[in-house]
Write a protein that binds this DNA or RNA. Sequence first.
RNA 1: GGUUCCUUGGCCGAGUGGCUAGGCACCGGUCUGCAAAACCGUCUACGGCGGUUCGAAUCCGCCAGGAACCUCCA
Length: 500
Amino acid sequence: MWLKLSFNLMENQLFIYNTLNRKKELFQPLHAPLAGMYVCGPTVYGDPHLGHARPAITFDILFRYLKHLGYKVRYVRNITDVGHLENDADEGDDKVAKKARLEQVEPMEVVQYYLNRYHQAMDALNVLPPSIEPHASGHIIEQIQLVKDILDKGYAYESEGSVYFDVEKYNKDYQYGKLSGRNIEELLNTTRKLDGQQEKRHSADFALWKKASPEHIMRWPSPWSNGFPGWHLECTAMSKKYLGEVFDIHGGGMDLVFPHHECEIAQSVASTGKDGVRYWMHNNMITINGQKMGKSLGNFITLEEFFTGKHPMLTQAYSPMTIRFFILQAQYRSTVDFSNEALLASEKGLSRLLEAFDNIENLKPSGQSSVNIQDLKAKCYEAMNDDLNTPIVISQLFEATKIINSTLAGQMNLSQENISELKNLFDLFLFDLLGVKNEQKDGNTSFDSFSKAVNLLLEMRMQAKINKDWAASDKIRNELTAAGFEIKDTKDGFEWKLNK
RNA sequence: GGUUCCUUGGCCGAGUGGCUAGGCACCGGUCUGCAAAACCGUCUACGGCGGUUCGAAUCCGCCAGGAACCUCCA
């Protein structure tokens, strides 16, 4: 184990883009072979949409790759179930509480319902569950302690039962805004005049603890009031609890850079004096007609709608693996624009890869070969090491596909060694690391008998062809095609697959 | 208005100075009873204008267009 570990870690130099300095940096965990990563999970008050799939899949790839490199990874992805206000200036309803009131159920029923839906969608997308999935509501004690710590250090103040982070004071001692590149002094100077009605000293201050209004149902006792924690607090408290005061990677969507992650840094530095996070990673947005797909814009399509095709903008249903592959065909820091055309292209491309993989077992080895599969593999590693450049990995798999198909067509020769290398390449990169599932074949126990029946029909068709009974032959093919099968004639017989 | 970033062929998307990914679509060919699939080939782009350089999609400047964040959003 140790030999393998050191080999992998030595051979692979993973560079990741760090939002803190906008550069690709060599990943060197604090306590190798341990690696810690924390990713902002969903606020569970609505169905997960395509946008939620992006960070989930992006950091799933990172999780898988780090493990493959030999790290012992602790992956924490939180569930926000309290404290996320729908409006802001730290005013307005809690998102979960509002939904609960509208649907006349317990807030935790809302949370459980949408969390289940989220898990189902992630499972369909073959996103591995994180090591720990902590709920904000389950860590109120830790959050209260964090507020106390920040108060003790003098970077927060109490105001009418609520506690706010003192951004101005913090900025004098440290630098608020270094992640997002914001010059907070300008902001402070230009917005100094408040109307005096507010509890906050300054509009840039953010809530650490909010006193609950009488009708607010989610509330906990604290030294300051019966209330609830501010949104930014949970991530700092829970990452510290499970990963330590300083840990390796923090991920999330780019839209969280400011204010959420900026505030996390401030909370961490204010309470412990240390920058909690060494590598900040942010995935870009999925757009629709060039605009961010988001809840507030109302232009989102839920994952279930993609899987069922039931949305006016969708011309068909798309399998979870199509969605996953579509997302992986773009580098995670690029925006990716949704369209039916693009999704359809991914669907076809993916099925071509999977067919090629299935055909590896049909390859006949021949003595001489001129291809170098190890070279493809090396390029895949190189791409993964370059800030998880999955589109390049995929392009290499298409190169492999070309080799497989050309060999099948008798235009190329592969040695037995080549063939097993190809199998290994797909197993490792397509299935293990990119996390694609071969859906048609996986775990379908009735598939065998089903296959036998289809094979029987097609054998009858072969017989008809030999008898030059084209009417019978075409009838079988046409009916099967109409039933959703795709039939191919080959040199020695036939192949078939079921579309969707 | 401030901060950050983007603009690549019909579409989606890689590519941080020379070796000009990949997918999908289209078209032509091979194969086939006819198809389909597969294979081969074709199409060779970098928003505009300047600059640096022997050489730029890639570096610099200006202009145009777009996006994200600056309120909640992955």
